[in-house]
Design a protein around this nucleic acid. Structure first.
Lengths: 300, 300
DNA sequence: TTAATGTCTTTTATCGTGAAAAAACATTTT
DNA sequence: AAAATGTTTTTTCACGATAAAAGACATTAA
């Protein structure tokens, strides 16, 4: 079992959804581009679709024979990357308590527990280390630094520096820049969300990420843009596990976003700065209140 | 050849240097702490030293019998980590021209060329990716983003943000903080270097790194501290390969450092800001002039 | 003669394996 | 009994091997 075929399975599932829309599928290279996979994978997909009677396939002709049935799909969990599986397991352990700062992380144990090879775990930990939550001891174990108040403060400090700068850069962008239409579109989505906030409040986190990424991109600085990955990761898990007053919090945040968007559109740097600061302050507050500070810092 | 014993060889060499100073070696745990290795490695070292007649070893008694001879040492190149070897090879390729932005990086080819396994190369590339010079295409190759003018500008932009903030934090540190003695010591080293600048100018780069790391540490922010790794890496290779007016450049920089140190000691935020800005500006200039901008950016 | 399909080759992702190094446990010495 | 040494176990590091996926080349259809 040296490599799972999750790329194929995931692409297959997405391809099934395309079947509803058309009577026949496009050329192999086109399908590949559409699904983001190579022709090799496309051909495996087509081969299986032919086998299961979904399509008739003869060279260029790929005619849809029937609508896909629920059990034509591969199970969702088989479409995940190993990296996703490892990340989830790791974060579950990390957030499920008992993960004290200073605790050591054992690659072999993690690998056995998750049921994967050590190499994948090692690679995951190396990638994960840039989030600042773990640290490597040369030739030895990893050390958990813990999801502490200090971490949240350090994270938000950088976030605020970067976002204030990005927001200023955004507001200074020429009127004909395509970002303004992106912003309009996001504003619309925000207004729609406000309207149905009672039922759709949980859609906020995804919108939040897209909004902030748009702003950060205006910095034209890869380090700023990349840093948003750290924020996104933390907020992603934070949203999943801190459900207290979720609706209220999100409603407030959407309001702040709208004010922020107004400020950006005014292109008045003072207003932008104020709106940005206000939103980031409440975002920080939300994050901080969700961290149970049950330990004293070990250094004075 | 599944794992080289470079840890042992490097520690052995360092242990040989200890032999000059004492007539007998300390306990195994103490030696381990001193050399930064485990007792297992210490015991291998002692075993070999006994074998080669350097010491007489009987339980606690580890008497030095003779001074180490040059060829008691393992060759320097056998003491490097695989990661160091790979980094050097990779950077050589990257700086040796012909490394156009957009070029793709092949793990297998790199591994074959350097003569190591693919896993080590993969892990190196993952670690290296945080420097912002390469990027991974999912399920496919890495792409070289190139050591371009844009890269240098993005890097220095962040550096300046971080260092201005750290310097301000530094100046605000209480008088009894140990950093002030560290600063005094560094100031001394700078003064000594100024005196002998004609011959010792090449020692600047190491001093430079220690100085800036001291300042960044005052931020008490892991993201700021960690970012200095990116700067240090770039400047490390930059110093190695841009030798034009090295003496003059370093002389100027030492002077700027001294002014910067004075400003910090004055604890006058205005002066600190000015001195920091001035030095960072010239550091940026130095970096920029060393980048041959022979390509037009591909996007308008 | 361009763009697709068919076929073959190369590279990436992942595992199991084994030596180096660390860590844990047991025993002795002071 | 505290701290060293001696011994055993566990973990990390690095490799080669193999299936999945990508990519390159050859062939055929429009």
């Amino acid at each position: 079992m040296s490599k799972s075929n999750n790329v194929y399975k995931d692409a297959y599932n997405r391809c099934l959804r395309l079947l509803d829309e058309t009577r026949s599928l496009p050329s192999e290279p086109e399908l590949g581009a559409l699904l983001g996979v190579s022709r090799t994978t496309v051909r495996s997909i087509l081969a299986r679709m032919e086998e299961t009677g979904l399509i008739a396939w003869n060279k260029r002709a790929k005619t849809v024979l029937r609508d896909p049935h629920p059990d034509d799909f591969f199970p969702e969990e088989e479409t995940d990357t190993l990296a996703e599986i490892i990340e989830r397991s790791f974060m579950r352990r990390l957030l499920a308590g008992g993960a004290e700062a200073g605790m050591q992380i054992n690659e072999l144990e993690l690998a056995r527990e998750i049921g994967v090879g050590t190499t994948s775990v090692r690679e995951f930990l190396i990638r994960f280390s840039r989030f600042g939550l773990i640290e490597k001891r040369r030739n030895s174990h990893w050390v958990l630094k813990g999801f502490t108040r200090a971490f949240a403060l350090e994270l938000t400090e950088i976030r605020e520096m970067f976002e204030l700068r990005s927001a200023a850069a955004f507001a200074a962008l020429p009127q004909d820049s395509p970002v303004w239409t992106d912003l309009d579109r996001l504003e619309d989505e925000h207004r729609q969300l406000v309207r149905d906030i009672a039922t759709r409040f949980n859609e906020f986190s995804e919108l939040d990420e897209r909004f902030h990424r748009l702003i950060h991109r205006a910095s034209h600085n890869r380090f700023i843009v990349d840093f948003y990955d750290v924020i996104a990761m933390i907020f992603h898990y934070h949203y999943q596990w801190n459900k207290a007053q979720e609706r209220e919090r999100n409603e407030v945040a959407v309001g702040e976003h709208l004010a922020y968007i107004e400020a950006l559109k005014s292109r008045d740097l003072g207003k932008v700065d104020a709106a940005c600061r206000k939103h980031l302050k409440s975002a920080r507050q939300t994050l901080l209140t969700s961290i149970p500070e049950n330990r004293q810092p070990s250094r004075a």
